[in-house]
Write a protein that binds this DNA or RNA. Structure first.
Lengths: 248, 248
DNA sequence: GAAAATTTGTCCGTATGTATG
DNA sequence: ACATACATACGGACAAATTTT
């Protein structure tokens, strides 16, 4: 165990909280007791007060629960498994993991396509595209904030349809796209921006998984280019490679 | 723009640094000048000294460079694109992005299989497995720290072979596995543990992309189960879904 | 070339947050 | 709850280097 570091802009109590999340909790069953504060303090080489701050933070996040005289216990919560494959859709794939799923339209805008969007959608640079900002939630908990771009010529009514249905799949179906599949997906991880903190109800320092992908219709024409930002502590991305080949 | 938050255990200067990384830098070309410190301070609603701390940190990471009287400039660096597909291997897929790739054996150990490893490898619980801890680097920069498990009965010499070749693919080839493919990959993102900080030479608060995957041979038998931890600021994972289907 | 404006670098002091015992 | 030390954040003033007028 390497010593925790000081003067890094991350308070020690927060580093301890992250360490508890990653090295203590994985070894515990739900509702099992954590080692005593004093023991954790020794293990991490910090003062007991610092461990208490860390536990208080994890309690506020709903991960732990401290009971006077008894100890601190692990609450039962698990990450959503979000499948990424050819048929990546928010609505399906989570049915068995959450009672309710919702999609909310935050904003929409028609604009000239930025270079990367134009490339992804095979449109000439500056062609009009519709940008949709959406927020997806499962059981009322925000899961991902997405920005999607569509060819404005082909899908002019997409914003109204999404606002009505809360589903990309349903909106596209009404516009004559009965099926679409994912071509490629790129995954990155970064610290949440202040906008992420706001939309996904995260606390500073939180992590977002950022995916960028292109969906194509059955003719191979690009339908949408999208970037999604997932709350990393609420999901894992499950990638099925059973029949995928690497690009050359 | 939401206001940055205080008393969260994440120093303001660090939040500003993350905000610069995500909202200022993406709009800049290489070697382009950033807005002046005073302007950034106004934009983020903090003191100029706080912006200076943030810039100092990004400078130490090699991302920015400040010049007295002239301004602060963006250095030219980009993320490695790491392909994940059926033929996921460290050695190939990065040839055109890094001059040298290396794999180092950190430790190896024979142990009874933990439950999840036994399941992944289709072995009875507690069957002997070999655990390999390895570190992969590109151009001398650590990229990922991996832990892999192998059936000890079938691959007893894997540790010695890896130490010699620095490559899983090469080691397996010598043990009669001429080809293997990735079955599934799960991706998560978390804060770097103190072990990650040490192995990947990261600073606290850094992010790791964690992938867990199973590789199978041409007969469909599991060959290895592995967990890799990537330095998130050095790579993006590129997933090809061209022929993948989602699990039911 | 000289003066003004701009931008980063350094120093002072003070208040609050973090970490220890 | 108390006391102590260090890190963080703010505000202001001025110096040093560079570009613009």
């Amino acid at each position: 165990m390497k010593a925790l570091q000081r003067r890094t802009g991350i308070a020690l109590w927060r580093q301890v909280a992250d360490e508890i999340r990653q090295t203590v909790i994985p070894g515990l069953a739900a509702n099992e007791r954590l080692p005593a504060e004093a023991e954790l303090a020794t293990r991490f080489g910090v003062n007991r007060h610092t461990v208490r701050s860390a536990i208080a933070a994890l309690e506020k996040e709903g991960i732990l629960r401290a009971e006077q005289g008894r100890g601190t216990f692990l609450n039962d919560r698990k990450r959503l498994r979000y499948p990424i494959g050819r048929r990546t859709r928010f609505s399906s794939g989570l049915e068995d993991q959450a009672r309710t799923r919702s999609g909310k339209l935050l904003s929409s805008e028609t604009m000239p396509a930025p270079p990367d969007v134009a490339t992804a959608l095979s449109l000439p640079a500056g062609a009009p595209v519709i940008q949709l900002s959406t927020l997806s939630a499962a059981d009322g908990v925000p899961i991902s904030a997405a920005t999607s771009w569509f060819d404005a010529g082909r899908f002019s009514e997409i914003a109204e349809l999404y606002a009505e249905t809360g589903s990309i799949t349903a909106s596209l179906a009404r516009l004559g796209v009965d099926d679409y599949t994912r071509k490629t997906t790129a995954v990155e991880a970064r610290h949440a921006s202040s906008e992420d903190l706001d939309r996904l109800a995260l606390s500073p320092g939180a992590i977002v998984l950022l995916t960028r992908g292109i969906d194509i219709d059955s003719d191979g024409r690009p339908v949408l280019y999208g970037e999604s930002r997932f709350a990393a502590d609420r999901v894992e991305l499950l990638i099925d490679n059973r029949a995928a080949e690497n690009p050359a």
